[in-house]
Simulated scan of single mutants.
Amino acid sequence: MTDNQEKERPRRRQARGERRIAQLLEAAASVFCTTGYTAASTNAIAREAGVSPGTLYQFFPNKEAIAIELGSRLMHEMRETYGEALAPVDPATPLEEAVGAAVDRFIDFNCRHPVFFALMHGPDIPGRIAEEHDALYATLIARVEALLASLLPEAPAAEVTRTAHVCLGIYKAGLELVLAHQGAEREAYVRELKNVLLRYLAPLVGDRSEGRTDPLWSGTP
């Protein structure tokens, strides 16, 4: 066996291992969404992945380890998402555009990864995920504050912080409704969510909301 062949074998094993981990995480996401974290089991995840429990235990010692790895990967992607979605906006940007762009980016992420909501907002979040989620939420609040500060340059810092918390609370409540529906009905709930946020923010922003057309968000989301 040549040196190149000896080096290639570990790389192939590593690639197979990464594919198996991805397969198990995808299966876990499906099971967590269907049953919730507490009711999920490693046997159910292995069955969903089409592997034996023994194969699963080669990569993860328990379901908490699976949830932590899945949550960590999703939170990394979420950080990239809100980094793009919540950048400060040009003061000339219409309020509808600023709100709509942020909502669309977050909705797209959560619809592609419904398990993120199930893990992060369920009543039974594993301890380490809860800690990471708290850190993520704190960072997210800071980014929303930065976005709002560009829309409300004269507002006191305490008001901006309070507004950021209210906006995230509205989004979280609306997201649960969005994820519970499909197709045209989901799109309708997205429009309603944007409307609620816009009607909340418009009086705070003042004349920046002038010139919008009614009904609000009459176009496609």
Rank of each mutant, 00 (worst) to 15 (best):
E6T: 08
P215M: 01
F106D: 01
G211S: 03
D214V: 12
P88N: 04
L193P: 01
Q182W: 11
G50C: 08
E48F: 09
G83R: 04
L70D: 00
P203N: 04
T2Y: 03
K172E: 12
L177P: 04
P221C: 12
A118P: 02
E210T: 12
A49I: 07
L74E: 00
L177R: 13
A164P: 04
L193G: 05
A87W: 13
V205P: 02
F106Q: 00
Y82K: 10
A15R: 13
A202P: 04
D207I: 11
T35E: 15
A29I: 00
R20Y: 03
H181Y: 12
D3G: 05
R212F: 13
E192S: 15
E26L: 14
F109T: 03
R16P: 07
E145N: 06
E131N: 07
P153K: 05
L147K: 04
D214N: 09
Q23C: 11
L204Q: 11
A184N: 12
T163V: 07
G54T: 08
I68T: 14
K7E: 14
G183D: 09
L148D: 02
K194G: 06
G183H: 10
M75N: 06
Y137V: 13
A92W: 06
A15E: 13
T2D: 08
I125A: 05
A39Q: 15
R19S: 15
H165V: 10
V115M: 00
E210G: 10
C111V: 08
A87D: 14
Q58S: 11
V99N: 04
F117R: 05
A85E: 07
T220W: 12
